[in-house]
Design a binder for these strands. Structure first.
Length: 224
DNA sequence: ACCCAGGTGGCCC
DNA sequence: GGGCCACATGGG
């Protein structure tokens, strides 16, 4: 079972090794949300192309996006892949924020994270990871994102007993407590785990045969 | 010519 | 609850 001290130590090591990540790269909160949907199971570079297209067409705001046809939107976000489902998902989200919050993110922010998480999870196309990405990076709510890299990472270093989403999420949130910089730290930790995962830990659970394991230890990112 | 990428929902059992 | 599948583009 994961100890609080262990996760904090790992966080500090990752931070020292990779430096601050300063996620999420975006000009507005709405852009973060759109990016969170577009990057689902997709390389960020591809999602970025779609975001640039949206920006060029002034579609990075709830109402302009709402007023765009399905066909146009599909064409504009095509580079992000899964463009038909993602078009629906973007539409589902804007319908929600316009209906419930008059299209204003600032009004969403007034609500508590548990309440918002439930609402977000009711939207078709927004699952746990996307919901938590929106909560953490767009709305700056205290939540931890568990994505594929995080599952691999925790499994690799045997940091939890059970490997389910909520278990890992709660464990990490508890480890960071409730301080001024907790949200900041949760943002950094997730970004660092992704950055680390892009280089290491790919062959989970057969990590003994993973050629990167040795290098990972050698570089002192993680001590086992 | 493969394999992967900052997931999700639907279906089956 | 878990196991499989479709969804799709672009880069290595």
């Amino acid at each position: 079972m994961l100890k609080k001290k262990t996760i904090i130590e790992i966080y500090q090591k990752l931070l020292k090794y990779y430096g601050k990540q300063n996620w999420w790269p975006a000009e507005t909160e709405f852009e973060v949300i759109v990016g969170a949907i577009l990057t689902q199971q997709t390389n960020w570079k591809n999602a970025e192309k779609a975001i640039k297209n949206l920006k060029k067409n002034f579609l990075l705001s709830p109402f302009t996006l709402y007023n765009t046809s399905i066909k146009d939107l599909e064409l504009i976000i095509k580079p992000s892949g899964f463009y038909k489902v993602k078009t629906k998902r973007l539409k589902n989200f804007v319908n929600y924020i316009i209906k419930k919050y008059n299209g204003e993110i600032i009004k969403m922010k007034e609500k508590k994270e548990d309440f918002l998480r439930k609402e977000l999870l009711e939207i078709k196309g927004i699952g746990k990871e996307t919901a938590d990405s929106i909560l953490l990076y767009a709305l700056s709510k205290k939540t931890f994102i568990v994505d594929t890299y995080t599952f691999r990472f925790f499994k690799r270093y045997g940091l939890t007993g059970k490997n389910n989403y909520e278990e890992i999420k709660k464990t990490v949130e508890n480890a960071f407590g409730d301080k001024e910089d907790t949200v900041y730290n949760l943002k950094e930790l997730h970004a660092l785990i992704v950055e680390h995962g892009k280089n290491f830990c790919k062959k989970i659970p057969k990590c003994t045969s993973c050629p990167l394991t040795k290098e990972c230890k050698k570089k002192g990112v993680i001590n086992e």
